[in-house]
Structure formats: C-alpha cells, structure tokens
Nucleic acid binder design. Structure first.
Lengths: 248, 248
DNA sequence: GGTACGGTGTGGTCAGACCACATGCTCGAC
DNA sequence: GTCGAGCATGTGGTCTGACCACACCGTACC
C-alpha cells in the first residue's frame, strides 16, 4: 500500500530524509505559510500519519520534538483543549537545551555566566534608556524582603527577578535566552549557596544590589545600571566559585 | 538507579511522568553524574528500553529529542561509529529552536535582530579587549572579496563571518546563540536581498564595514568596534525592511 | 430540568515485526 | 599464507496494530 506512493510517485528517489524529518518539515512549512498559527490545533496524529504517508510513531517523534522545543502543548482526552495546540513558549525549550548542553560539558558554566552578564548588562542599558514596565520586577523585590526566607526560596525569587528584567525589555528572544541561561545553571547555583551562617549577610547584600539596579534604571542612567548589573552578577559568581582567572 | 518497573512496585504511585521523560531524565542524570560524557555511546535503544522498563518507542522519542537538541548523533549499522554518540553540538538545536519559534510567530524578527545586535556588539567589545584568534574571520573576509560573487553566496559567507566572530570570543554559548539567531532569520535575509542592480554597491559597502570592524578590533578599540558592529547590522536591517519605529 | 452513563476521539504506550546499513568474521579460492 | 566474497550480527529507522487513560458530549433515564 505504501510502496511507491511517497514523494515522487514515478521516480525512484526513495526520499533520503527520515520520516520524522518529513513530518517536522511539513509542520514548519505550514507555520511559515500561515496555514498554522498560535492557538491552532495540529491534526490528530493518526490523520497526520496517513496524510504524510508515514507511520504514527514517526509523527510522534516529530510532535515530541515540537513539544520539548516549546512550540506545542499536548493533552489527552477530547474536546477543544485536547490534542496538540500551538502555543510557542520558547523558554522551556531554551532551558532544556542549555541545561543538557551544560550537562554534556559542551557549555562551560563560565561561558553561561559571562553570556548572562553580557545579556543582562545590555538589558539594563536598554531599560534605563526608555519607559518600560518594571512593576513585576518590583513586586519580586518586595517578595524578597520577606523575613526568614531560606536561601533556596530567595534564590528562586532572585532568578525570577532577573528573568523579569529581561521580560520587561519586551524582547521575547532576550527573555527566553535569559530564562534558559538561568535554568541551565540552577543546579550549580543552589549547590553553591552559602551556608546558613553567612546567608543573612549575603541576602542583605543581594537585596541592596537589586534595589540599586532598579534605582539606576529609574534614574535613566544606563551606564550605572549596566555597571551595577555587572558587579552584581560577577560579584556573586566570584564569591561562590573558586576564582581561577576572572572570566572575561 | 531507581528501582526499575514502574517505580514503586508495591505502592500505588503509577509514575506520573511520561515514559519518554523518564528516559530523558535518566540520560540527563548519567550526564550530570559523569557516567556519560562526550564521545560515549548511549546504550542501544532496545537495551535502554528494557533497562528502564519502557517501550522502545518511548526511548526513541527521548533519543530524537537529544538528537535535535544537538546532544547526540545517531548512525545505523554496526561498529564503533554506529549507534547514538554524545557529540554536544549546540548550534544545530539552537538554530532549530529559534527558526521554529520565528515561524510560529513567538519570536518577532525585530527581536531577533535586536538581540543579535546586542550580542555582536558585546562580542566586538570583548574581542577588541584582548588577544583572540581572528584568522578564520579574516579568511572569510578574503573569500568575500572574490569578484562576481552572487548575493546568496556573499550573504552565506557574511553569515559565517559573523558567526566566526562569535566563535573567536571562545565563548561557546555566545557562538551557539549567534548561529541560532542567524539561521532563524536566514530565510528573511535571503528574501530581502537587494536585486542585481543595487547589489554591487551594497556588497562593496558591506565589505568595507567588515574590514572596518576587524580593524577596530585589531586596534584594540572596543568602543569603535562595538559602534561599527551596531551600525553595520542596524544599517543593513533598516535598508532591507520597511522602517517603522527603529527597534530598540 | 437535571443527572448519570456510555460512546467517541484524542494522546500515551507497548509489542512485534521488518528493513537498511555498517561492520567484522568465516571460509573458500588461489 | 593471503586475499576476497559472502554471510552473521547488531544497530538505528519504520510501520502496524493493539491497548490504555482520559476528557468531552450526547443521550437516556430519573
């Protein structure tokens, strides 16, 4: 039933592409052409399989890729919310990619930190240069003032604060990258958190630095905002790691 | 390793994780613990399936994810080169992720361009501040001097030039991001290339700007290098698009 | 009118069967 | 002994068919 039907029906070209790549390419084409867009449902896996002349397992591999890349959300059951829906949430995929690359030693932690430093400095510069909505970041600052916050909880809020700065820039790419960079080293940050004795002092310093960054942004002072971000990240990194040769 | 089967055999917890997530988590754990590293082979799919108590299709979904993320390379056949080998080449996954997110309208092209601008400016600053090996970039500049180069060929070299600058910074994360940003808008760049009449002038200008950037880096002048990169990218972007409100 | 219940369609998973391919070994020819 | 052809083996790649769990939706019953 399937013999010659795929692709060039009359020609001998047996389609060198793998079956799942065919599916991925087809969906990407539908996205580019506008046939698919945010909020739309992908066809059911079985329908996609017969439509493209591949097995359902190949369709599933492509769908799985789209899911981990944050392009779609899948749900079982029936009804409007079931099936594979295009959602386009990049941060999840970015985080997974970076986390695994760090785990596989392709991304040294040093590089992740310096990249984060570059991005955040640029973000701070940008935020200080124009009117942006920093209220989510401010709320996180207030949350971090809560007394008795443990290191893990504080650092979680800290991470959200930095990501919220990226989000405030309204640059979705920047925000996704920041989220990915943060998540990829989350384990290392938590593992190197100061112990309970030194923690209160560290937390106090971090709070002050955060406020200082936002203050510089509010003051419309890009250079100071950028410099304070640099010191903030760089300082914390140096504190929690064995200094070896000052990454860039 | 966790007790196989469905986790707690005696308990009612039926493992809420999906089967392929189990596989992915297992491999990630092996990477983090050092049991797996660059160059190593993943166990055969069938062995992995029985070892984790899941079906081979679930293993394949996880392997597929690792492959598109650039973590492994798969090959059929037998022998040392066959199977799934950990390679950790991040750029492929970064490119796919960004390309699809752009296709799904989650990443506006404007954001991609401004992010690229930020990253390249930072890279130029860094390159001008220390000794780095720019010879790959120089060779690309020479290649771009070849007469009679078409727009498509020139732009391909152009893209490689910019990525080579990122690679010269020795920051793997930065290099991967730059490659991804480039690839994600490749289609748009090619589609908006000037026609044959205007092309020679454009190419000449781009050549001169590239040389100017490298010259500033060689001169150890971070500010000039950064400014020239900004003008270079921004200028080209404005030229090829309908200006609307000057992205960032 | 409201509620319980079963039909239906979705993704999630597994098992088994082939295929194509690369390797490496065996065995025969010389 | 050397060399080459050819088969055995093990890998990923794919398809098929079968279930399951789940969420909805319509119908029949109360």
């Amino acid at each position: 039933m399937l013999d010659d039907e795929d692709t060039v029906t009359a020609e001998g070209t047996p389609d060198p592409r793998k079956a799942w790549e065919t599916v991925l390419a087809s969906i990407e084409g539908d996205l580019l052409s506008g046939r698919l867009g945010p909020g739309d449902h992908l066809p059911p896996e079985r329908a996609l399989a017969t439509a493209l002349g591949v097995g359902r397992s190949s369709v599933r591999e492509a769908v799985r890729v789209l899911e981990v890349l944050g392009l779609i959300r899948t749900q079982t059951g029936s009804g409007p919310q079931s099936g594979a829906i295009i959602v386009a949430r990049p941060s999840g995929g970015m985080s997974l990619l970076m986390r695994l690359q760090v785990a596989a030693r392709a991304f040294p932690v040093d590089d992740v930190v310096s990249t984060r430093l570059i991005l955040e400095a640029a973000i701070a510069t940008q935020l200080a240069s124009g009117p942006f909505d920093l209220s989510p970041a401010r709320e996180l600052l207030d949350s971090m003032d809560a007394p008795g916050l443990g290191a893990a909880d504080f650092l979680a809020l800290d991470a959200q604060f930095h990501v919220s700065l990226a989000a405030a820039s309204t640059n979705t790419v920047l925000a996704a990258m920041m989220a990915g960079l943060r998540d990829s080293v989350e384990g290392y940050v938590l593992a190197s958190a100061p112990d309970a004795d030194a923690w209160p002092d560290t937390a106090a310093r971090l709070r002050a630095e955060h406020r200082g960054i936002v203050a510089a942004i509010d003051a419309g002072d890009p250079d100071t905002a950028s410099a304070r971000i640099r010191d903030h990240i760089h300082g914390y990194y140096l504190q929690t790691t064995t200094p070896k040769e000052t990454p860039w």
